[in-house]
């Protein structure tokens, strides 16, 4: 807890006040809502509600699917300016496509986004093992689906982030290159003008 706060503070100190503010409170809320609900329902559902396994199973799977959709299609682009697609070419090979925004995003938002993106699949993996130890085969199916759906977003966004990083580096390289060229040309023209005057 304190560790996380420290990270938040450290991130907040780096940026300007505008970067510390939360710009998309609704997106932030929905980013953690469905996955938390799914997890809470899995852990406490059978104690709190007198509903059957099937009803809980359907509710959790639908929550996980909603979470997958919301994180992939909405909160990623609003909170961190990233979006990933997986398209299929004519010959059946799948191709990753990435979109990224260079605009500075809120640091609080990006921290919440990335922490929750990685934390939930880890928790589901833990639950796979606890279900395995209890020999609860039917219950084990839920964390497996959880890992699959949450994990797909982890893979997508990590790849997208990497792709955005190389784009930024390429742009920086481009900028430096342009400056170098400008300098080279301007100094070149200067020397020629000098020789002309001499």
């Amino acid at each position: 807890m304190s560790n996380q706060e420290e990270v938040l503070l450290a991130f907040g100190d780096e940026g300007s006040p505008s970067q510390r503010a939360i710009k998309h409170p609704i997106a932030l809320f929905f980013h953690v809502l469905f996955r938390s609900l799914a997890l809470v329902l899995y852990v406490f559902g059978s104690y709190v509600f007198s509903s059957s396994f099937v009803q809980l199973f359907i509710a959790i799977i639908l929550l996980l699917a909603l979470d997958f959709w919301v994180v992939k299609n909405v909160t990623g682009r609003l909170l961190v300016g990233l979006r990933w697609w997986n398209k299929v070419e004519e010959d059946g090979t799948s191709v990753w496509q990435f979109e990224s925004k260079q605009a500075p995003s809120s640091n609080v938002e990006s921290v919440v986004f990335w922490v929750s993106l990685f934390a939930f699949p880890v928790l589901w993996i833990v639950f796979i093992f606890t279900a395995l130890l209890k020999f609860a085969w039917m219950w084990m199916l839920i964390p497996i689906v959880g890992v699959a759906l949450n994990g797909a977003n982890v893979i997508g966004y990590v790849k997208c982030r990497k792709d955005a990083g190389t784009k930024i580096r390429a742009m920086a390289g481009q900028f430096i290159g342009r400056q170098l060229m400008k300098q080279a040309f301007s100094s070149g023209s200067e020397t020629t003008s000098q020789t002309m005057t001499i």
Binding site: R77, G81, Q97, E99, K167, A170, G173, G177, L180, M181
Partner: peptide, 21 residues
Amino acid sequence: VSGNIVDTQSRGRENDIGTLD
């Protein structure tokens, strides 16, 4: 450097689907 510029520009255009906003 100029070779790099051409490369990144063509890749950037291909990925630009424009659904971020």
